[in-house]
């Protein structure tokens, strides 16, 4: 075990896998000498050379599309989209090509690629550099969607993603990059579709993703002082989604609050709420509540941006409401 940041854990996963498999290459804008906009790929160029660590022109459609083509022809690309918002430029290659190929070709194709992307608000980067878009990717059959919250999960999930034979979207909330945690040396994987109970509790289940897991843990600490016990469930992968663990938790607590940063309307929480309503309605003692961003682009001005991001207080209020 060693203590490292979320960013270092992601880099470490690259190193472990690139040492193991010579057919993995990394590509993206400024991933080489510059080390990535958030420093994640720093050092990979020195260690693995230009053939395997490729700086690209500003050309998202071709970064994603070449990865799809290369993956279908035997490589295992791990590409970086600097900000997830830039997927707009490249979406066709991801969803019409990568996501559909296997099915369209009657099961023949295999697209083992990972697209990493930084997401989320909190640094004043404004509307085109701050969004969370996990629901968009969840909606597209053929893609898997991973959203880690800790350095440990990030490394294990990224290694799993690289070994997966499907296109995987790996979402890294930028407010997590500096978060530290214990991470095992070398090789380990975390299977997709296995939620993690980040804190056990008995009164209310809170399903939270990415940095919102930390917001939920903060709220849990405060509410514990008031005698309210939160169970914090982190799905870790949104597709596949571990409905079973979530439902088992709800059957225990009888109350569910979902917390995520992306907009509430048609966000990932809507799917989680629907699954619980379908499978465990009779166990619920209160309506399911969602705490999430309002339906607007991410604003620039700091007070507006802070108001946009779901807060610990909003979660506490929602918990009190379902407890009332």
């Amino acid at each position: 075990m060693s203590n490292m940041t979320f960013a270092q854990a992601i880099k470490d996963a690259h190193v472990v896998e690139m040492e193991r498999d010579p057919n993995i290459y990394v590509a993206g804008e400024d991933v080489g000498v510059f080390g990535g906009c958030f420093g994640v790929t720093a050092g990979l160029l020195d260690q693995f050379g230009e053939k395997r660590v490729k700086d690209t022109p500003i050309t998202e459609s071709a970064i994603v599309g070449t990865a799809v083509g290369a993956a279908s022809a035997g490589l295992r690309p791990v590409i970086e989209l600097m900000f997830v918002d830039f997927i707009g430029v490249a979406l066709d290659q991801l969803y019409n090509q990568a996501g559909k190929m296997k099915y369209m070709f009657g099961g023949k194709a295999k697209i083992p690629m990972v697209m990493r992307a930084a997401c989320g608000a909190g640094i004043g980067a404004a509307a085109q550099h701050s969004q969370c878009l996990e629901a968009l990717f969840m909606h597209l059959p053929g893609l898997k969607v991973v959203m880690p919250s800790t350095p440990y999960d990030a490394k294990g999930l990224l290694i799993e993603a690289i070994r997966d034979d499907n296109p995987v979207v790996f979402l890294e909330h930028k407010m997590l990059y500096a978060v530290e945690g214990e991470v095992p040396e070398g090789d380990y994987t975390i299977s997709f579709g296995q939620a993690d109970i980040k804190r056990e509790g008995k009164d209310v289940t809170v399903v939270a993703t990415a940095n919102m897991v930390h917001t939920a843990l903060g709220a849990a600490e405060k509410l514990a002082a008031d005698g309210i016990s939160l169970e914090v469930v982190d799905p870790r992968t949104l597709n596949p989604l571990d409905g079973e663990t979530i439902i088992a938790s709800v059957k225990k607590t009888h109350r569910l609050v979902i917390l995520h940063e992306e907009v509430k309307f048609a966000g990932s929480g809507a799917e989680i709420a629907a699954q619980v309503a379908e499978e465990a309605f009779d166990y619920l003692d209160a309506p399911i509540l969602r705490v999430a961003a309002p339906f607007c682009p991410v604003p620039f001005s700091p007070p507006l941006e802070q108001a946009y991001i779901p807060s610990e207080q909003q979660l506490i209020d929602a918990v009190k409401k379902v407890m009332a």
Binding site: G124, A126, A127, Q128, H129, P299, F300, S301, L304
Partner: peptide, 10 residues
């Protein structure tokens, strides 16, 4: 210019 909603890039 943008009521604070856009910032430098917008």
């Amino acid at each position: 210019y943008c009521k604070g909603k856009g910032g430098s890039m917008h």
